[in-house]
């Protein structure tokens, strides 16, 4: 039986009737039309579906949309403000931190929490902080560079 949910997504409140089993990732992609977060696995392992829920990075494939009701969701589409890229987006671009781009939206949002928790992380802390996001293309080195560079910019 469908139930009503209300979620603030990228700053806008919206309400829908959903089946309780509807996963947040499917809700965002299919109902709301935000296809930035991707689906890379079903075991909550790869992190491609990462979004922020009340300011924290979570895997949107491992939460039902109904659980997010009354809360705030930020997806990659909501990260740039007034057309200005987030420093992390800018850094990912400058440092060539992506190739096929499929993991990138999730990677950037995880990196965002990483810098929230620890504004000047070491290389090791960056690598550890991103362990929940698999990238098959880059070997991660340019991603590490991007996070470092975004941190340095923020600290400058």
């Amino acid at each position: 039986m469908k139930q009503k949910i209300s979620i603030t997504i990228n700053g806008k409140l919206r309400s829908d009737e959903v089946e309780p089993r509807l996963l947040l990732i499917h809700y965002l992609r299919e109902v709301v039309g935000l296809t930035g977060p991707h689906i890379g696995c079903e075991t909550s392992t790869c992190g491609a579906c990462t979004v922020m829920l009340d300011g924290k990075a979570i895997k949107s494939c491992t939460i039902f949309a109904i659980q997010a009701s009354g809360r705030e969701v930020l997806t990659i589409e909501g990260l740039a403000v007034n057309g200005h890229l987030d420093p992390l987006q800018e850094a990912f671009w400058n440092e060539h931190a992506l190739q096929c781009g499929f993991c990138t939206p999730g990677m950037i949002l995880t990196a965002k929490q990483l810098l929230q928790d620890n504004p000047s992380p070491t290389e090791e802390e960056i690598r550890k902080g991103l362990e929940g996001n698999i990238c098959r293309c880059t070997g991660y080195q340019h991603i590490v560079n991007a996070v470092k560079s975004a941190a340095a910019k923020a600290g400058a």
């Binding site: 930035g36 977060p37 990659i76 740039a80 890229l85 987006q89 990912f92 671009w93 992506l98 990138t104």
Partner: peptide
Amino acid sequence: EDPRLITGT
């Protein structure tokens, strides 16, 4: 190619 990829579009 990156602008569309880093913005999820």
